[in-house]
Design a protein around this nucleic acid. Structure first.
Length: 881
DNA sequence: ATCCTCACG
DNA sequence: ACGTACGTGAGGATG
């Protein structure tokens, strides 16, 4: 069998990969998507073709012989974007580390080198594959030279193969005629001029008839489309030049030794280090044998036998420090990871619920371990607490929360990420081990891999504790972690376990009522529109409103017309159809998200147990999911009625307390603006006071409009003021909005200084902080994009305010929970909605609960202004607000 | 999977 | 000139 050589057009493939793949960077901010894509295509091709030789050709910056021929050739390719340019030298280094042969030559393009090598290799009797994104190369195709053109679209790569016959089939022309084709039609991307008015169609026709440019010119009078004939007469010299430009030089003076291109083992240590640095985890698995041995010995094993398990648990109970993870998916227990240090060796086990190793037994053992160990670390302590009753122990360490505090912008805190960042170890991620399988399926089909993943979780939890603690110390967040986040975790766990009672019957009736009206509206809308369509489809609705009925409003979103409420509201007064659609939307939302949506979460205990997530938001707030109980309607009366289905257990009432303008008070404190502080000390109605001071009118003469405007400005300040945003909100001009803002800053002079200071600080340090030291990085401030940068500025202004308010209510929650227990009350904290706490209060404890809420919420932080709350009791959530 | 819309603070 | 208010989660449509 003849030998095979693979030749690659380096820049062309990098280009393809760059534009075909989404942006990708490693932790250092180096762009890596082109390199990643290149390697992907390289590995894939090598695996498919199994070549004996490999060479990558790169262009140099030096001018080529084409420049001497044609002045305009200079401007050729459009300039490379910086994000791609920076990847080129790294790509070459990676290839060098892999021992891949590379060539380039002054005065010649990669095409010419590839053409020369392809032809020479063919002469030596080899099978040749040329990999390039450039169709120019098709002229090289023969029965032994295959041109492969990868196409990357939406992350998927398909490859088109061209031997000589394939070129003929696709273009009706021989490979050599591709040069003629280019000469006639030109190539914009290569800056090759063509004949005006001659495209691919005409060019192909001419070539089928006359074979080549010269012969066509000889018969120029017969050339069919008059336009082409004239173009030929006028610009024949141009076509001849273009032909020379398009022709690949297959006789470049390259010195090339095939032996140096022979494929060796490219899984070298150097390459491994590179892949690690670039964070190409998928590729690292190719380096099984050459991977660096870890410093500490590790062992990962799966346990399914009772006697084995008992021995391990016995050993673990002697250990001071454990890593633990309980794996549950969709409410099903799938396994338990346990890790500890044993004679300089880290042992990690995954216990699977099989035979005598029942779920109950394993969880019981886990609880015992948690009670007896001096320190237990886990990636998610709260999920563990679901299965066990633990007092608020200070010996628990939540590595997920620690990693979140270090960088709250990540979308997840997985063991492989934490290992990479805090242990410097590259562990295969869940996706590497199981692909797209979830753990439930993974445990069935790939038990070993899934179990290994569980081992890693316990292992990373154990090992990352100290580095994470160090990192928290170094960023002055250890106090925040130890005294706020960790205790809060226990409070949140209790809230989740407690749940909130919901009247399923009432909820059903509410939904049924909505449905009656929805059907009515649907009928009317179809009539008014003159046809039936899906009202829930913004696309279809846009066509009906703005094309069929030609209502004003035009385009707005990328994909078509905006049908958002603020757009429709402008049309509603004049068009009943639009008003009906708005009402329909409102009802449909209430029914799908709330009436129907909540019903499925009601448990056997009549209660809904939401999950409160502590590691989601960028600012430090908590979030609520499955279901979200932090966005239950209240602003519109019809929606607000839903709150009547949230009821306390028998013999209890609800006590609801919410902070009054906590964010504005935080702003007053943090800025130290005396005028705003004073305003809070004097007035109950801060918005009226603001209006009075900003618009220079006596307090009692402030009009409703003035108050409304002042309120909007107050909001705007907290959001990171911009005149545009304010103008949108108030439907005024930007100029007017800017005037309001200016007046505001004149009235409260220190606010501007404070907000500007936050932006400056963020630019200098790269992050902003809350009163309690919580950090939020603001990488957007470094962006070259104006929009992104402006966003960064608003974030820098808003996050310390929103985040400090979040810190304060977290402190209040911990203290309220603690006080309820210490006073031996039956009442329990159920929900937190950012500035509001809801307590299920035993009827005979209402006074104590009110006192606790009042005291703990008001005293959670000591500010220059007082923290005030509004408090209500009621027999359901509607009544308690 | 991603967009649009809309519910809350 | 750019094209937005800050922070979330969920449902439905659509590719």
């Amino acid at each position: 069998m003849s030998e095979k050589i693979l030749l690659i057009d380096g820049h062309s493939i990098l280009n393809r990969a760059y534009y075909g793949l989404p942006e990708l960077t490693n932790s250092e901010g180096l762009h890596t998507n082109a390199i990643y894509g290149f390697l992907n295509i390289l590995f894939k091709t090598i695996e498919e073709e199994k070549p004996d030789y490999l060479t990558v050709a790169f262009d140099l910056h030096a001018p080529t012989f084409r420049h001497q021929m044609y002045e305009a050739y200079k401007g050729t390719r459009k300039p490379m974007p910086q994000e791609l340019r920076e990847q080129v030298p790294v790509m070459k280094d990676v290839l060098a580390a892999m021992g891949v042969c590379m060539i380039s030559k002054e005065g010649y393009e990669a095409d010419d080198l590839l053409g020369t090598l392809a032809k020479k290799s063919e002469e030596k009797g080899m099978e040749v594959t040329v990999l390039s994104g450039d169709r120019d190369l098709l002229q090289l195709a023969s029965s032994h030279i295959c041109i492969r053109i990868p196409k990357t679209r939406f992350g998927k790569t398909t490859v088109e193969d061209y031997f000589a016959d394939d070129v003929k089939e696709k273009y009706q022309l021989s490979p050599e005629q591709i040069i003629e084709l280019k000469a006639l039609m030109g190539d914009a991307s290569d800056n090759i001029p063509g004949l005006p008015g001659v495209g691919e169609k005409t060019a192909t026709k001419i070539l089928l008839e006359y074979g080549n440019v010269e012969n066509a010119y000889a018969h120029v009078e017969d050339i069919k489309p008059n336009k082409a004939k004239n173009a030929f007469l006028e610009h024949y010299d141009l076509a001849v030049l273009s032909k020379k430009l398009a022709a690949i030089n297959i006789d470049s003076p390259v010195e090339y030794d095939w032996e140096s291109a022979r494929i060796k083992d490219y899984y070298t240590q150097d390459a491994y280090d590179f892949f690690k640095e670039l964070e190409f985890k998928n590729f690292l698995s190719r380096f099984e044998d050459t991977s660096a041995p870890a410093e500490v010995e590790k062992s990962f094993s799966t346990v399914t036998e009772l006697d084995q398990a008992e021995e391990i648990f016995g050993k673990a109970r002697q250990k001071p420090e454990l890593g633990l993870h309980i794996l549950k998916e969709n409410g099903v227990f799938l396994g338990m990871g346990l890790s500890f240090l044993d004679e300089e060796k880290v042992l990690s086990y995954c216990f699977l619920p099989q035979g005598f190793l029942t779920e109950a037994y394993l969880l019981e053992q886990a609880q015992v371990l948690c009670q007896e160990a001096a320190m237990v670390s886990s990636l998610d302590v709260k999920s563990m607490l679901r299965h066990m009753d633990l007092e608020n122990h200070t010996k628990m360490f939540d590595a997920g929360i620690a990693a979140y505090l270090m960088n709250p912008l990540k979308s997840a805190y997985t063991y492989d990420d934490i290992a990479k960042e805090y242990l410097g170890e590259m562990l295969p991620a869940k996706e590497d081990l199981l692909g797209k399988l979830n753990y439930t399926k993974g445990m069935k089909d790939q038990e070993e891999q899934a179990a290994l993943s569980v081992c890693y979780m316990a292992y990373v939890a154990l090992k990352s504790r100290k580095p994470l603690k160090k990192a928290l110390e170094g960023t002055e967040m250890l106090h925040l972690f130890t005294n706020i986040e960790m205790p809060l975790l226990f409070t949140l766990s209790e809230m989740e376990k407690e749940g909130i009672r919901v009247n399923a019957q009432a909820l059903k009736e509410y939904g049924d009522q909505l449905y009656v009206r929805i059907l009515e509206l649907e009928k009317e809308i179809y009539q008014e529109a003159g046809e039936e369509f899906n009202i829930n489809s913004p696309k279809q609705l846009g066509v009906i409103l703005f094309e069929k009925l030609k209502l004003p409003g035009g385009k707005k979103t990328k994909t078509g017309y905006s049908t958002a409420a603020d757009v429709l509201e402008k049309l509603a007064p004049d068009h009943k159809l639009v008003a009906d659609i708005l009402e329909y939307r409102q009802l449909a939302k209430l029914k799908s998200t709330y009436a129907d949506g909540l019903a499925v979460y009601i448990g056997e205990d009549e209660r809904i147990h939401s999950t409160f997530n502590q590691t989601i938001t960028a600012t430090g707030r908590i979030s609520s999911t499955e279901p979200n109980l932090q966005n239950i309607p209240i602003r519109m009366e019809l929606g607000r009625l839903i709150r009547k289905v949230f009821i306390p257990r028998d013999g209890y009432v609800f006590t609801d307390a919410d902070y009054s303008q906590i964010e504005l008070r935080v702003l007053a404190h943090m800025s130290g603006d005396e005028k705003l502080i004073q305003a809070y000390q004097e007035a109950q109605d801060i918005h009226r006071m603001t209006a009075s001071q900003v618009f220079h009118v006596p307090f009692d003469e402030v009009t409703d409009l003035q108050r409304r405007n002042a309120k909007a400005v107050n909001f705007g300040i907290v959001y990171g003021i911009s005149s545009f945003g304010l103008s949108q909100d108030l439907s005024i001009t930007r100029k007017e909005a800017a005037q309001y803002i200016e007046n505001y800053f004149e009235t409260y002079p220190k606010i501007k200084g404070f907000l500007d200071g936050l932006v400056t600080e963020a630019k200098e340090k790269g992050y902003v902080t809350t009163m309690f030291g919580r950090r939020r990085p603001v990488p957007e401030l470094k962006s070259s994009n104006f929009m992104q940068r402006s966003f960064g500025e608003r974030v820098a202004m808003n996050s310390p305010i929103q985040g400090t308010a979040a810190d304060i209510i977290k402190i209040a929650m911990i203290r309220v929970g603690k006080a309820l227990k210490e006073q031996n009350l039956k009442s329990r904290l159920l929900l937190q909605v950012h500035d509001e706490l809801l307590v299920e209060t035993a009827e005979d404890e209402t006074a104590q609960v009110s006192a606790i809420l009042e005291k703990e919420m008001k005293n959670a932080a000591s500010l220059a202004v007082s923290l005030e709350i509004d408090m209500h009791t009621g027999s359901n959530w509607y009544e308690a607000k």
